[in-house]
Write a protein that binds this DNA or RNA. Structure first.
Lengths: 195, 195
DNA sequence: GTCTATAGGCCGATAGAC
DNA sequence: GTCTATCGGCCTATAGAC
């Protein structure tokens, strides 16, 4: 069923979200005006309110969608050996973070600009993602494949280390993505006592 | 030499900086108005301009001072064994980050709001700090006390991991600072192949 | 050093035409 | 769905009195 001309809602909506994500990540939520977002998309400011009730909802939507997409993209293999599961997690997390650097940056930089209800929703999703790594670490420790003092602290430490790659990695630099992932996996393996 | 009454410049100046640091870290640079800072200090907005030429200089000053203080506080012992130097760095970095959480958070969250010149100055200071860890790792690898594939990448990974402690650590939580530092040191030791 | 007052401007959001 | 026009408000920074 081809659409007739007149409505551009299906393309403007995503464009608004893309522009907002990019601008919020680059300049900060508070520093970006609705007028700037509109100008990037190529519409007037008033038109944005056909796609979001207000600026705050636009941010909350970007962050919750990002966390849901992240959770949906991570496919654990609970029956595989723990070290294989951990390696898969490391490579997945690095690749996903680099592929969605704006969303990753935004979702731990602008949590403070969410309403309490929206904050709780995003925090809960993040907790579920962290839990999936903790489960791998526990399984590895129980199976004797890893040596670690505190699975929860190790979870936070490893996620911090892996996410940090977005702070310095540059496409076309000395190391490509594959080399970076290989090196990080070596560091993680050592950290969990499986060197 | 006791001061007579009349001038409160010596106390207002630091109060302005403290209030700005705290408010910028909590709400973001762009979201905080000069009026809010002034109200926190207990003066009118116009009075702030006796201490800073503008809002941007206030931010730049906070960030460069933070990096200079960090560099001044870190005392390496180049003649000690590399593993001892690394342990000292780990414990120092965690303690300093937790003691100055607002400044740490601000100085990698608001770099984008610096003018190019101010950005370059802060980035150069940060580079010097990173170099001091890289030097320890190189010394450890040469002495055979550590096994690592890439000292520079390992530097970025370790600093990311250690700084990340500010994202989740809460005073009075399950683990105290000493326990957290002990655990992180164990992870770092494993990561550099000195487990 | 701090105040009051204000200039000049951009903000988020809405109303109503098309 | 998008436009133009606009309301009411808050912003940074400055001027001039004390």
């Amino acid at each position: 069923m081809a659409r007739t001309t007149g409505s551009r809602a299906e393309i403007t909506g995503p464009l608004v979200r893309d522009a907002a994500l990019r601008l919020f990540a680059r300049h900060g939520y508070a520093a970006v005006s609705m007028r700037q977002i509109a100008a990037t998309v190529g519409v007037q400011a008033g038109a944005l309110y056909a796609y979001t009730p207000d600026k705050q909802a636009l941010l909350a939507n970007l962050l919750t969608d990002h966390m849901e997409n992240l959770l949906a993209a991570w496919k654990d293999g609970p029956d595989a050996p723990p070290l294989e599961r951990l390696e898969a997690f490391v490579r997945f997390h690095i690749a996903y973070s680099l592929d969605h650097a704006d969303a990753v940056f935004l979702s731990y930089m602008e949590l403070r600009n969410l309403s309490p209800a929206n904050f709780a929703a995003v925090a809960a999703l993040r907790g579920r993602y962290e839990d999936s790594l903790t489960a791998i670490l526990r399984a590895g420790a129980e199976a004797g494949a890893m040596r670690l003092a505190d699975p929860r602290l190790t979870t936070m430490a490893l996620i911090g280390m892996l996410t940090g790659v977005t702070n310095w990695f540059r496409e076309g630099g000395r190391l490509d993505r594959r080399a970076v992932a290989d090196h990080y996996w070596g560091l993680v393996r050592g950290a969990v006592g499986a060197g």
